[in-house]
Amino acid sequence: MSFIRTFNGDIKPEDLGFTYSHEHIVCRPDYWVQRGEDDLLLDDKDKSQKDVEDFKRHGGKTIVDATAIDYGRDVQAVKQISDETGVQIIGTAGFNKSFLWDARVKEELKPIIGDYETYAEWIDKTPINKLTDFVIREVEEGLEGTPLKAGQVKFGTGYNRITPLEEKTLRAVARAHHETKAPVHSHTEAGTMGLEQLELLKSENINLENLSLGHMDRNPDPYYHEQIAKTGAFLSFDGIAKIKYAPESTRIYCILELVKKGYEDQILVSGDTARKTYYKHYDYGLGLEYIIAKWVPRFIDDANRQGFDGEKLIRKFFIENPARCFAFKK
């Protein structure tokens, strides 16, 4: 029996609906606070909520909030948005990537994780089994001492490297997955180190069909994508609308190359919308409505012209594949 865990309880996979697989809704990362990067602070619950309402108005039903503890998440605000909009939210336990760990631990978290000044100090000085226990608690009891349970576990690695602390968190997350059966998500910086992550996860006896790798479109290399897909893992193309990295034609090309090779059941699509300038109601950006309202019709048209069934593929990427990817398989 399988289920999906949301902030409002466990649901059947068939009740997930149209899903964005990687977003950030309300967060105030201390790393960016210290550097005065206001654009990277999604710190207005009401403005974030208006974008979520836009997503719902176009038929969206679920959002995976991929914000981990070290990225300044606000789980109570996100829960309120879920309650007030009716959009289902999946929360995230685990960790991000090492360069963000210079962030200061919020005072209210110190009773939960210990009296550490930074996340790097916490991760470095805490035995791996204790980090594992922490991730398990966030899945089975609740995030940051709340009753809001995580629906996935996450780790991250940097650009073209995996640091010792990142490997430590990867292994802690893998072991928490074995205990909880929560699906696993990974951050890959600019789409790099995905294959290296997979090798480490194999050493922890992880079934890679329970894993999604983020930011695959930041490394638009069809050969690389195929090597990852061969392992059974999900590939998340979650940079939609970020033309500064690549045009949409490049992303669509990479997605359809995977479809041609028979991997259409392993593709996820989202926006990783983590800046004020990406949000419509913060700073006039394209907003959370862009993918469902504009990118989806463009993809269908493009795919159909190339001989694919665009509508069928959209159903897979946003409904059927997330329903399998984010399921706890007990």
Rank of each mutant, 00 (worst) to 15 (best):
L143C: 03
I267M: 04
F317D: 01
Y245S: 07
L286C: 04
E144T: 04
P127G: 06
K56C: 08
K50F: 06
P297Q: 07
R5K: 13
H58S: 12
A172C: 06
Y245G: 05
Y71L: 15
F134S: 00
L288E: 10
V78D: 04
A274S: 12
D133E: 14
G191C: 10
I240Y: 02
Q88N: 14
G9C: 08
E144H: 01
D133V: 02
L286N: 04
Y31S: 03
S21F: 01
A150E: 07
G194D: 09
V269F: 04
I81T: 03
G91M: 06
L40N: 09
H178D: 14
E196D: 15
R324M: 10
S82T: 09
Y223F: 14
E117N: 15
P13R: 01
E320M: 07
I300F: 04
Q49Y: 00
I81P: 00
I267A: 04
T250R: 12
N219G: 08
R73P: 11
I292R: 03
H215R: 05
W295M: 13
G94A: 09
E311W: 00
Y282V: 07
K149G: 01
I4Q: 01
G59Y: 08
K202N: 13
E199W: 12
G310C: 11
P127R: 01
E199Y: 05
A293P: 06
D102T: 12
G151E: 03
G142Y: 00
E108T: 06
N207E: 15
K276P: 01
